[in-house]
Design a protein around this nucleic acid. Sequence first.
DNA 1: CTTCTGATTAGAACAATTATAATACTATTT
DNA 2: AAATAGTATTATAATTGTTCTAATCAGAAG
Lengths: 138, 138
Amino acid sequence: MIDNNVNLVSKLKEFSIKPSIQRIEILEYLMDNRIHPNVETIYSNLVDKMPTLSKATVYNTLDLFAKKGLTNRLYIEPNEVRYDIRKDAHGHFKCEKCKKIEDVEIYNIETDISKNGYNGIIHAEEINYRGICEACAK
Amino acid sequence: MIDNNVNLVSKLKEFSIKPSIQRIEILEYLMDNRIHPNVETIYSNLVDKMPTLSKATVYNTLDLFAKKGLTNRLYIEPNEVRYDIRKDAHGHFKCEKCKKIEDVEIYNIETDISKNGYNGIIHAEEINYRGICEACAK
DNA sequence: CTTCTGATTAGAACAATTATAATACTATTT
DNA sequence: AAATAGTATTATAATTGTTCTAATCAGAAG
């Protein structure tokens, strides 16, 4: 546990984020639960452990994480932001039946629009699919 | 005008949508304004012409259009759904400065995840970029 | 110890969306 | 033409994710 916290703290420091108990706990939750959670899910899972936690803190923390490049914001849901700590290029699949969001591997991808003559500055890229997932399809 | 409406009506029928005045007007707005509007924008632009229009009708109509495959719902914004009538494969670029959403062409794209061994049923695909657009970048 | 800055909180405010119940319209059948 | 059934539309309330704001807290700096 202590050893684990050392890792979490150094992870935060690696991204120039000052560690606080709330930030460590939120980071730990994200790393242990790769389910692309929303703020509500994160909050309700941590509030038992940290009774003084507020939703605003979760929002603030995740905004900070995103700004520092530690997490990505996912806009795959119409009405809520999801968060993903996995940083390598991959896509997401939202199952319309079971509602789960899965990572999907995307090989051979060529979506670098700068190679297509686009000269804007790209900060983030997101590839989303919607449909029926493998488990629900059969 | 009458001629134009004929086109709009046949477009609706092509997608098995029963024409109504509201549906014709909303479709016309989408075809004339390729700005990926949200419900609010569509509503406020049409309410002068059709004073009895309600937002619920706009929501219902766009949900119907999406279900029938006439439009796509875009989740590029955190808290609101945008609508796009263009149906060929392309991406979207949201400028964080001027807030505009542009279409971006994506050539050489290989995002067909079924080719990567994914066996789910894909209903929709979305590729979003965020950053600073060409106009704001220079 | 005091001051200052940034972190955190709690709760109000806001805005997009959905749900619901009532009303109006349209087409069909009698 | 009248009655009926089914759909379209409305108006409003309710819900919900997010942001804002003012107050408090914790820790660092002087």
